[in-house]
Design a binder for these strands. Structure first.
Length: 414
RNA sequence: GUGGGCGUAGCUCAGCUGGUAGAGCUCCGGAUUGUGGUUCCGGCUGUCGCGGGUUCAAAUCCCGUCGCCCACCCCA
């Protein structure tokens, strides 16, 4: 690798064929699950007005305050989307989707951008598969969306399945009271906590609950819990989400200490965590955002959604078997090449994976290539085959050969 | 933004206390001008990340820098 070689920019990577087969499989599975749950695909722009994220996601969040790719476009401040929920809700408002009958259920698959220091399972361009159900605040919607995720992860055969952490963050009526209680409790104990927590106590008290420093755990145990402060409607909502999940036999762990990094979350929040992901153990996260639409200037539109870290999910799934040709065309002279080309066209039209070598080579080399590419069969086409109109099909794993007419051959592979 | 580890061939890596670069795999060719996977023979590829310093001499020691990885912060 020379010094002047141009390489992919930091935190962004190429996905090569041996990886994309698995990516495509996962995405196809996601689309199928979304389809049967009644979700339609939405494709929003990768670039939005910076204000959308500043107001939607929250100006004080880490994402907005220090991780966005923002640039000036002839006087307009634009940014590469760091997440998709704000865009989807923006589109929901812009196109008056609330006029459609029933819930608006949308899904998306695509790249997001955050300028963070890369590490395992964290990239500056990363992919998310997500969905949003907008237009209802019913707890049944919360449970169904989690069911859909559980269904999806089962279908892609994630093993073991992740742990579902569940919490409620309350709403505008009760969360402020909890925050007050938390802040006043912290003033008494923060001096005995780690330096990060002392800082968080000021900037983002909720995050203190999420601290992993062992020495702080006992103190955190003694802090107020959000669930003790939920107002009646929020308490009821949370209880019913749990009932609906239990009814569906979906295991979950109520986790009052789990908080989320985006400002728009209200009530239900959840996170699916997996042990073998390193420090970035969250495979997906989501929650309810009953106030988001209003925050970005629309009508009230309660909603709930999630986003799956596709890079992380893929990480957990291992590797897909390599693609291999069904037939490698071993042609031996120019006339046979023509023959190989036209037979390949017929076979490919039937979905058979056919490889036609581009240049004339010795038969031994061609067989060697067929073998190296793990072709299932080699089809030998030479003068002998042409004059008899019967072609030699060799099974590469057993070495058995047989001669077939074109008709027999197509029948064999249809 | 902060900390730690690591940068030698396409890949995995060796190279001890400084003497100016190697192995395996891959790739290409031949043994084998109509038969591969085994075997044998031959061959290609490196500014030893980059820059500077010490030295008669640096892949090796020192400084700086860049990159990658992991962790922190935070999060998908």
């Amino acid at each position: 690798m020379g010094t002047n070689t141009i390489r992919a920019v930091k935190g962004m990577r190429d996905l090569l064929p041996f990886e994309t087969t698995l990516w495509n499989r996962v995405e196809a599975q996601a689309r199928e699950v979304f389809r049967v749950y009644g979700y339609g695909e939405i494709r929003t722009p990768l670039v939005e007005e910076t204000q959308l994220f500043a107001r939607g996601v929250g100006a004080e969040t880490d994402i907005v305050s220090k991780e966005m790719y923002t640039f000036d476009d002839h006087g307009d401040s634009l940014t590469l989307r760091p997440e998709a929920t704000a865009s989807v809700v923006r589109a929901y408002i812009e196109h008056s989707l609330s006029r459609n009958p029933g819930l608006t259920k949308l899904y998306y698959i695509g790249p997001m951008f955050r300028r963070e220091r890369p590490q395992k399972g964290r990239y500056r361009q990363f992919f998310q598969i997500g969905a949003e159900a907008i237009g209802s605040d019913s707890p049944a919607v919360d449970a169904e969306i989690i069911e859909m995720l559980w269904d999806f992860l089962g279908r892609v055969k994630l093993d073991p399945m992740p742990e579902i952490l569940l919490n409620s963050l309350g709403d505008g009526a009760c969360r402020p009271q909890f925050l007050e209680a938390l802040k006043s409790a912290l003033t008494g104990v923060k001096d005995r906590m780690c330096s990060d927590c002392q800082r968080r106590a000021e900037t983002n008290p909720l995050r203190v609950l999420d601290c992993k420093v062992p020495a702080d755990q006992e103190i955190i145990e003694g802090l107020p819990k959000i669930t003790e402060f939920l107002c009646e409607p929020c308490r009821d909502h949370y209880a019913r989400v749990q009932e609906y999940l239990t009814m569906r036999h979906i295991p979950f762990t109520p986790t009052p200490r789990m908080v989320r990094g985006l400002d728009y979350y209200t009530r239900t929040t959840f996170e699916f965590v997996h042990g073998s992901l390193g420090a970035q153990n969250s495979v997906l996260g989501g929650g309810r955002y009953d106030g988001l639409a209003e925050t970005i200037g629309g009508p009230r539109a309660p909603g709930i959604g999630f986003s799956i870290g596709e890079d992380r999910l893929i990480n957990l799934l291992g590797e897909a078997p390599a693609a291999r040709p069904d037939i490698y065309m071993v042609w031996l002279d120019p006339e046979s090449q023509k023959c190989a080309i036209s037979m390949a066209a017929d076979l490919r039209a039937r979905g058979v994976v056919v490889e036609v070598p581009p240049e004339a080579r010795k038969m031994g080399k061609l067989m060697e290539q067929a073998s190296k590419l793990s072709a299932r069969f080699a089809l030998i086409i030479g003068e002998t085959e042409r004059v008899s109109a019967r072609y030699t099909l060799k099974d590469m794993s057993t070495g058995a050969q047989e001669t077939l007419s074109v008709d027999e051959l197509t029948k064999r592979f249809s």
